[in-house]
Structures are given as structure tokens and as C-alpha cells.
Write a protein that binds this DNA or RNA. Structure first.
Lengths: 250, 250
DNA sequence: TATAGTTGTCTATATCAATAGACAAATTTA
DNA sequence: TAAATTTGTCTATTGATATAGACAACTATA
């Protein structure tokens, strides 16, 4: 059963090439600990037999993972699993970007990519309690930890109330600090909706991902303690680098 | 910029065929409302131009989605988006399976697939505050709404404290009701860790998915109001049918 | 009833993906 | 040092994927 199961799970003619499927299987085996970090993978011929494909197909999969920095192949010795940990990103009523990441990484910050003023779309207007088409400020940001992108977010603010928040963000590099300039010294996450999908072209570029990667997407509304909406945001996290830890009771 | 963005996001030589990528893009466009339900898609030639591929490639993508029951093609008239909504699954301190789904579906229930007694693994023991190897009861369940699988879960319970919970679950079809038999009439979600990955062979079979599908994975610990751990669980949700709504403040 | 617009089918060609086999190059082990 | 093990490179062949063009079949509309 176990022996057959693996060969069975490779699907031909699915629109996903065999080498890509096998690369994903190897990633999964690493994630579950079946292939331990800093040890050698089974030799190519063994993997080929395990997955029921040709050795060259396995080599294509390994080649892709070497390209992605997951494996390192050494002629004559073997192919080794490099160590890489998931960043555990906390989400709760009072979570801020950098607060919960302390101790996990040595360096982390937010980069402001761009800002613009635009009319509110339907969902942004709803989230912020504004009329559709009302002017909102949009901040595009990227979160980085140890030099690698770990999040990509768009945040919308009421343009009348938060005029100049783009400048504050550029200067402080922090949403919390920027909001403090407008008299907001505490805010809560009112709602978060979470989904997952394949990374699109923008994700691939923004988060430095390979095609086929998965992103976690959160859509959230932040409010003042008395319930006034101040920020609507959509964030994307690369699933291969980040897991979201939900702290419900805080 | 907007016009180019779409053509750019199709990646060649990525291990994922163009027709599969375009099928995913169409699914995404449906999800975001760009292609409204019960209306016609743009004609094939327009889609081919939009995505920068040949008309026949678009036809392959559409053919796959017709097969999956997402679209219906009618010769001479057009290709139509069938209605199908994402189930919004609530997660919060007091969320139960069926409570939050009211109104979204006409029929929902949990099926007990199997139960067993086993020694606790490292993470299960940690979650439940038991010694590693202590006996635990494992319940495998599937959640269904309107006849379609929407979740697949494994739950672990201390075998000494909850002996017979498998029978209770089989009879009541409800975790909450089963726990009530052991004097637990309230419990809270202490922690939830969320991740996403491609569906593996087991997911494909359990949740009736197509290869390449994405699953959301939650790992959670439920506790009594005074903090005593009672259940450790790992659940998988098909991202194409379910989104998770996090109700942080409850 | 034409005509335009749309999906369906067919042929042909080029490229990518997968299999197959042989052997080279590097490393470890006996 | 010799043999065994493992990754790297090359050639060749087959099937799936993608492009291209032409035309048939069906629908809605002027």
C-alpha cells in the first residue's frame, strides 16, 4: 500500500509536468521530515524507482530545486537537503509586522514600494466604511526578513483623515509609527479573511518566487479600539517561507 | 501596465503547461469577480489575445474547466460561468464546524471515516501536554456541505480521559456533542497554525480534487475554559471551495 | 434570410517533456 | 589502488504541448 501510494500520486497528462510534481513531492517530504535537512537524498535511481519515472525526470526535478536553493548536488557524493525554516508569522488582534518575529530572524523591515491616491473600490469602501469612489491612499509595501521577501501588502487609508501617511511611512518604515502621527496609538484587527492560491506574475516578481509557488492571502480591516475603521489591507505571503500563527486569545 | 501585466504572468517552461496556467487564471478571475457568474466569458480569440497564447491553448484550458464543472460551453453562443461560491469557514475561539456555516448551505455534516488508538507523536504529545508515546485516540473525519467535501481532519484525544469518544462521535456526528458526554460543555481554540501547500495523493482522494489543487492546512489545539488541552487537530481545506474567515475578537 | 459572431473539428509543424541507454567524472569504500 | 557508488553529459526516440490556418456547425441579429 505504502509502496504503491507514491507511484499512484504522480498524475500524467494533468497539465503539470512530472518533474514539477516530483519536485513538489520532494519539497513535501522535506517539510514532513521524511527527507531530513543536511542529509543526502536517496540516489537518483532509487528516487526514479520510488516515483515510477525515468532517472532523467528525477534529475529535472532535482535541477529545479537546486535552482530554487533547496538542494545542493555534489558529483560522486550525493544530493543534499539544505536547511531552511518556515517563518512563523503571528496574526492576532494586536499583531504588528515586526513584533512577533523577534528571535526568529536577525534582520527585518518593511519597504515602501509605492503610494498613490485613488478612488475606493467596492470592497475597500465597504471595509473602511466610506462611499464607493471616495479618495483613498494606497501604500504598497514589502516585508523582508534576513534579506528575503516574506510578505507583500497593499494598504488603503481614508485620504481625508490620513493625508500624508505615505510620507510618514517612507520616513518611519512602520505603519504603527505612521499612524501614531495621526493620533492613533492603538488599533485592533477587526476581521481577517484568509485564502490560498498559486502565485501570479506580480507575486513571482514581488516575492522572488518560482512559477507554481503558493501564496497565502489575507484581507484584513484594522480599527481603533472604539471600532472606527482605519486601514483595509490585502497581504500575500509565500507559503514556502511563511506560516501564519493565529493567536486567537489575546 | 495593466494590459501587459496579464500576458506577463503566463510563464513558459515552468513545469506547468500553459493551458493549466490559463485555467487557473480564469478560475482566479471568477473568484475575484472579473468574470461574473452566469455570464459569458470573453470569446476564445479575445482570451487568446489577452493571455498572449494561441486560441487552441485557450480551448484546452476551457475544456479542462468544463470537465471540472466550472464552465459550460455552447456552440454558437459562448462559454458561460456556472455559479459556485467559496464557502466561508469561520475560525475563532469558539467556532464549531456547523455553527458558522448556517445560511450558506442547505446541508452539512461530519462523517467519521475511521478511528484508532496509537502512541502520541512528538507534536501531538506537546499539543495535549502528554508524554510522548502516551496512548491517544485518533479520529479521522470529513466535513461535507451540500454533498461536497469541504474539509478533512484528524483529531487526537487523550485515550485515558476520552475512552469511547470514537463511539460517541459515530453516534452523534458531532465533536461538540461527543465532548459533552465527557462533561465538556465549553471549549476554546487555544492556538491555530495555518499553512498552504499543493494537495497530495491523500488529499486528492479524500477531498475529490484535481491534481495541482491547493489545500489550506490548520493545526489547532482546543482547551477547556481553564486551559486544559483536550484536542489536537490537523485539518485540510480545499482552497478552491473554502476560505477561512478569522474572527479574532470574540 | 443573409450576415456576423461564436464554438467545434481537422491538418500540419515546431518545441517541450519523458524515456532509454551508454559512458564520463568525481567521491567513497574495500 | 581498485572497485563500487553517485552525479554529470551526450545521443536518440516517442508522446504531450503549443502554434498556425482553414473551415464546419450553430446562434443571434440586422
Amino acid at each position: 500500500m505504502i509502496g504503491r501510494q507514491e507511484a499512484d500520486s504522480i498524475e500524467r497528462r494533468s497539465g503539470v509536468s512530472l518533474w514539477r510534481q516530483i519536485a513538489d513531492r520532494i519539497l513535501q517530504a522535506i517539510a514532513t521530515g521524511d527527507f531530513a535537512e543536511n542529509t543526502a537524498l536517496p540516489p537518483e535511481v532509487a528516487l526514479a524507482e520510488r516515483y515510477g519515472v525515468n532517472r532523467h525526470t528525477v534529475r529535472s526535478a532535482i535541477s529545479a530545486l537546486v535552482q530554487e536553493g533547496v538542494l545542493r548536488a555534489e558529483q560522486g557524493r550525493g544530493t543534499f537537503v539544505l536547511s531552511r525554516k518556515l517563518l512563523s508569522y503571528p496574526i492576532g488582534a494586536r499583531t504588528r509586522f515586526s513584533a512577533g518575529l523577534q528571535g526568529q530572524t536577525s534582520e527585518r523591515h518593511i519597504v515602501l514600494l509605492s503610494s498613490s491616491v485613488e478612488p475606493a473600490s467596492q470592497r475597500v469602501a465597504e471595509g473602511l466604511g466610506l462611499a464607493r469612489g471616495a479618495e483613498v491612499i494606497r501604500l504598497e509595501t514589502r516585508g523582508e526578513a534576513d534579506g528575503r521577501p516574506v510578505s507583500r501588502a497593499a494598504g488603503w487609508f481614508d485620504a481625508r483623515r490620513f493625508a500624508g501617511i505615505d510620507k510618514a511611512m517612507a520616513e518611519t518604515g512602520s505603519i504603527t509609527a505612521s499612524l501614531a502621527r495621526f493620533g492613533i496609538d492603538d488599533y485592533l484587527r477587526q476581521s481577517t479573511v484568509l485564502s490560498a492560491r498559486h502565485a501570479d506574475a506580480a507575486d513571482l516578481a514581488d516575492l522572488d518566487l518560482q512559477p507554481g509557488a503558493i501564496v497565502l492571502v489575507t484581507v484584513a480591516v484594522n480599527v481603533t479600539p472604539d471600532g472606527q475603521p482605519i486601514q483595509f489591507s490585502e497581504s500575500r505571503f509565500p507559503a514556502e517561507r511563511v506560516e501564519l500563527k493565529l493567536s486567537v486569545n489575546n
